Simulated assay, not measured.
Amino acid sequence: MDPNQYCQDKAAASGSSFYYSFLFLPAPRRRAIIALYAFCREVDDIVDECSDEHVAQTKLNWWRQEISDLYQGQPHHPVSHALLPVIRDFNLPAEQLLEIIDGMEMDLNLHRYEDFKSLRLYCHRVAGVVGELSAVIFGYTDRATLRYAADLGLAFQLTNIIRDVGEDARRNRIYLPMDELAKFNVPASDILNARQTDNFRELMEFQYQRAQQFYDQAFATLPAADRKTQKTGLIMAGIYRTLLEEIRLDGFQVLTQRTALTPIRKLWIAWRTWMKG
């Protein structure tokens, strides 16, 4: 199979909000970001779909070696073949691709996070780094744009965590910091057993406000000179912030349902954001 088509199919099948923002990019950058996204999906799926942690670890180790081979010009996987011209054209460092794998590996070893500091490291690895790499692919002139992209990546990941509380709990994973559960008097058992309480809603409002702070911080950091080239990230933000608001309007019913936007609504938000200029 053609490597780029493999990545395209992987991205489209995921149904991710990111896919809708990619549609507006020029073809070379679109192929590049879809290849990066497909890589993230490949390593993320290993952790999510492998019930045997030893098998998952073996597969992640394989990908570490694959990154090494990729940077020596000897890729094996279709995604790696698609990434080969990307890492050359955009000068993407191997260390950052490996850091993404480090983040995925944390899911094998950590099912709880004691505080936000430890959670933030996880979020940076699986999303902040992706944001930085994406910003490079989109194009930038001011290094402050990389700080914007890292913060925006964290905001996206915090939104995902809020959306997926129930789904993660069914995998015995809790990404809400344990010290914050204690602060709001929410036992872990409430989350694992899907008990919706007023305390839980207050905890989720706290998480919501933090995510909004990261969105605001990201937008405040984005230099005006790079706003046009970074418009794809702004489309993603428009979709994700709308999702975050929907979750709040639903009363944070995240323990028993997964709030999602329809494809047509995502496309509308993407088009509206693109036309704003």
Rank of each mutant, 00 (worst) to 15 (best):
H111N: 13
Y122P: 02
L133Q: 10
L119V: 00
D102F: 06
D102G: 01
R143P: 00
E95N: 11
V126P: 05
V126N: 04
L108S: 02
F90S: 03
L97S: 02
R88Q: 14
P93F: 08
I87A: 08
R112A: 02
G128Q: 01
T141M: 06
D89Q: 11
R125W: 07
Y122D: 03
D142C: 03
F138R: 05
D142I: 06
I101A: 06
I100S: 08
Y122K: 02
I101T: 05
C123P: 05
E95Q: 14
V86S: 10
C123S: 10
S134A: 11
S134I: 06
S118Y: 04
D102P: 01
A144C: 08
R88N: 11
L108M: 06
R88L: 14
D115C: 08
V86D: 11
R120S: 13
V129S: 07
Q96E: 14
F90A: 07
A94L: 07
L98H: 12
R112H: 05
G103Q: 05
K117T: 07
G128L: 01
N109G: 05
E99A: 10
L110I: 08
E95V: 13
R88A: 15
S118A: 12
I87P: 09
Q96I: 01
L97C: 02
H124C: 12
T141P: 01
P93D: 07
E132A: 13
R88M: 03
V130L: 11
D115V: 05
S134Q: 05
L97W: 09
R112D: 00
G128W: 04
S118W: 02
I101M: 05
C123E: 01
E114N: 00
R125I: 01
V129L: 08
V86I: 04
G128R: 00
A127C: 09
D115H: 14
L133Y: 05
A94D: 13
D115I: 03
R125F: 08
K117N: 05
L98K: 11
E95M: 03
G103H: 03
N91T: 12
V136A: 11
C123N: 11
R120C: 02
M106W: 04
C123R: 00
G103R: 04
